[in-house]
């Protein structure tokens, strides 16, 4: 009962009071969080090496790039766009990292440079999507190939290694007194910022509106194109940064670094309950999704399950994450209208 409802409002037409939908409580992001806890507890009790701080910090560090890139990806998917080129930007920046290091640049010069490259890469995506009105799926499939290609042009099949230890430490060591590696600590910080932006600011409100009904958002005075451009730029920037992290973490710059990573990122975003068609999702869900995928991989690895199985598990999770809400809806519908056809509340 809404206390602010005018007292006589319902006099004319009886208000149709739907039962509070159960789905309010069994939201997908809550399920994923529960699943995460179950997996964690299962791991802790079932696998002896799992709940050690060494292992956990390793698992978290291993997740760094996916987790970082998942943040801007969430914003994009909520706004009904997608960026498939993230892993290629990561690869390109990693290759540049190596090439420039080889050419004698200092790390403190290299990192700003590749960040600029990331911004430019994102700008290209964004301009093609917003200025020409092209579908981001098609655009970023193109730039994905383009950027990865450029990575090979930059570095070929060479690998550059031997980066200074202090930087490598930054990418692998944990924050003193915690099992949290530095890159993941940064992720936590950025995740908080992203969560506030998405759920508590005008920009976030705008993103949901754009994803749900772009035309209505535009009519409401929201600068749709500018916001989308910004998202793609941020996505490029974060991917470039992830490229630096990846390079330092593995101590190896290669053109094929992070190949296929975009799929893992999208998998974790969707697993976190963000609707691929835009307009729905929570950052909490995405964080749970990222962690779930990371912990599962780690567990499977500890139990010596072949890496191939991990790929199967990821794929199945992805399918399940979109299929479950569907099936739930179908079941609800079947229960309500045993012979009903399509649900649409048209007059």
């Amino acid at each position: 009962m809404a206390p602010e409802a005018p007292a006589k409002a319902s006099a004319v037409r009886p208000r149709v009071e739907a039962p509070r939908p159960l789905t309010r409580f069994v939201r997908w992001d809550v399920i994923v969080t529960a699943l995460l806890i179950v997996v964690f507890l299962g791991g802790a009790f079932g696998t002896s090496d799992f709940a050690t701080s060494d292992n956990l910090s390793f698992a978290l560090d291993d997740l760094s790039e996916i987790a970082l890139i998942a943040l801007p990806m969430t914003l994009l998917v909520v706004a009904a766009e997608v960026d498939l080129s993230v892993a290629s930007i990561l690869g390109l920046c990693s290759a540049l990292f190596g090439a420039l290091w080889d050419a004698g640049w200092a790390i403190q010069m290299i990192i700003p440079f590749i960040l600029v490259v990331g911004v430019v890469a994102g700008l290209i995506n964004g301009l093609l999507v917003t200025r020409l009105g092209l579908p981001s799926l098609a655009v970023t499939i193109g730039t994905m190939t383009l950027y990865r290609g450029l990575a090979y042009v930059v570095l070929g099949t060479k690998a550059v290694a031997e980066f200074p230890q202090n930087y490598a430490d930054l990418a692998t060591k944990t924050v003193p007194g915690t099992p949290i590696p530095y890159p993941f600590a940064l992720f936590i910080l950025l995740a908080i910022v992203t969560a506030i932006v998405l759920h508590a600011t005008g920009l976030g409100r705008s993103l949901f509106a754009i994803g749900a009904q772009e035309e209505a958002a535009f009519f409401a005075g929201i600068r749709v194109k500018r916001i989308k451009l910004l998202l793609f730029v941020v996505s490029g920037l974060v991917s470039a940064f992830a490229g630096a992290v990846y390079t330092l973490r593995y101590g190896s710059a290669r053109a094929d670094n992070g190949l296929g990573l975009e799929l893992a990122v999208i998998a974790s975003v969707l697993l976190g309950g963000v609707d691929f068609d835009g307009g729905k999702g929570t950052l909490g869900g995405v964080i749970a999704g990222v962690l779930l995928i990371g912990l599962l991989r780690n567990l499977l690895m500890l139990r010596d399950v072949a890496t191939e199985i991990q790929s199967i598990v990821t794929g199945l999770l992805l399918i399940v994450s979109v299929l479950t809400p569907r099936i739930a809806a179908l079941v609800r519908q079947a229960r309500r209208h045993p012979r009903g056809a399509t649900p649409s509340a048209s007059s």
Partner: peptide, 29 residues
């Protein structure tokens, strides 16, 4: 349905959509 409203958005969010700036208290809504 297409231009006036975000159909899957709530009443309050639809009403607030045109003046997001003035809903802020500090940086957040």
């Amino acid at each position: 349905r297409q231009q006036g409203l975000v159909m899957e958005g709530s009443i309050e969010r639809n009403i607030g959509l045109t003046q997001l700036r003035s809903l802020r208290r500090g940086p957040v809504i």
